[in-house]
Write a protein that binds this DNA or RNA. Sequence first.
DNA 1: ACATAAATGTTTATATATTAACATATTTAT
DNA 2: ATAAATATGTTAATATATAAACATTTATGT
Lengths: 215, 215
Amino acid sequence: MNKKTMISMAVIRRLPKYQRYLGELLNNDITRISSKELSERIGFTASQIRQDLNCFGDFGQQGYGYNVRELYDEISKILGLTRTYTTVIIGAGNIGQAVANYSKFEKLGFELKGIFDKNPKLIGIKIRDIEVKDVDELSDFLERNKIDIGIICVPRTQAQVIADIFVKSGIKAIWNFAPTDLNVPEDVIVENVHLSESLLTLSYRLNEAKLFGEE
Amino acid sequence: MNKKTMISMAVIRRLPKYQRYLGELLNNDITRISSKELSERIGFTASQIRQDLNCFGDFGQQGYGYNVRELYDEISKILGLTRTYTTVIIGAGNIGQAVANYSKFEKLGFELKGIFDKNPKLIGIKIRDIEVKDVDELSDFLERNKIDIGIICVPRTQAQVIADIFVKSGIKAIWNFAPTDLNVPEDVIVENVHLSESLLTLSYRLNEAKLFGEE
DNA sequence: ACATAAATGTTTATATATTAACATATTTAT
DNA sequence: ATAAATATGTTAATATATAAACATTTATGT
């Protein structure tokens, strides 16, 4: 039975991992898998796997397990990977270029339509056949082109300005690499990639023993 | 009272955000703050803030609140930012270069000691005055230099090989940008930055309404 | 100086997430 | 053909995380 309730972020954040592991199984020509087997590979409990999947449908069969191809397709659909997405990157610095060159995203259906920066030294250079445009042209560009996802790779101080332009032009999803929290209306989705926070989490854990052991 | 129990990851992942917001307050010459005020800025409940901080000590004062400078210093200490860390980056591609050039990390005390790659076209080039070395030299390098954090920026298929070299050389913390889960002993800490998973989470949320609305 | 307001640390209650248990169905092997 | 094994979807139990309540202390203003 399909539960049409709100899915929790805890579940949502596990979905890409299911997709990745199922993709690997497919590549290894494994056609069926049980929650128990998958559990041993992916590191979640079998119970959690079954519950997670059941949020979206009855994909398995008692006594048999899950058909890998079928489940992979279902999860891809759930993740919204049956369509393509248009994107723009603002900020052609290191991170912006790294994201722009990450070929995996294109394979998944994320098409880069434009790169913008305000640095004259970067405006005009080409990254993957896309010429970096002046950020002053961003608003116009967004009016003429339907963009699904705006990617922010500018410094902290510029990030909110870009977010405001995105919101004004009707973009509903922002992937934010700037180390700051953006202020956007409720209907706009923001996914943050805060590298510093990730690194500080690591340094915390590296020191945790000392923190509590030697006081 | 100091609770010396194990701190949950939920709390740990909020710590860097406290540090960032307190840093901003400091820059704005704000000397004191209550959990209520901080709550309004940072977006956690006041109750949660007080509970989080209380995991590590009694930093506030009834009727007054928290001294910003003091709390900032305490949290920095908790995060392990009172010392420096030596790091190496393996993989001098787009992501590796982006991480290498992210100046913020140096300011926080993370010193880049070496960059390695196996691509002959990259070996020898300089990134921030550091010459990219052949990855074949990695093991030797790690024996001669005490490295705290190993940063993996190689493709998925190479990531485990690098992780194994790290583990063998005694590195206890790995920052992993490769889209795969690493297999390491229990005492080695792995912090993953899985960009694809982040992006797929975004695309899921962008489609969620359609997923449940039109069946 | 005293009363009121503010704000903590801590305890209690609630909500959420995870794990275990189980009834049912399918597969496999004899 | 039948019994045992497998494995699901679902419900119940446990554990964890978050929010609210509160008793106590400090600060502030008259």
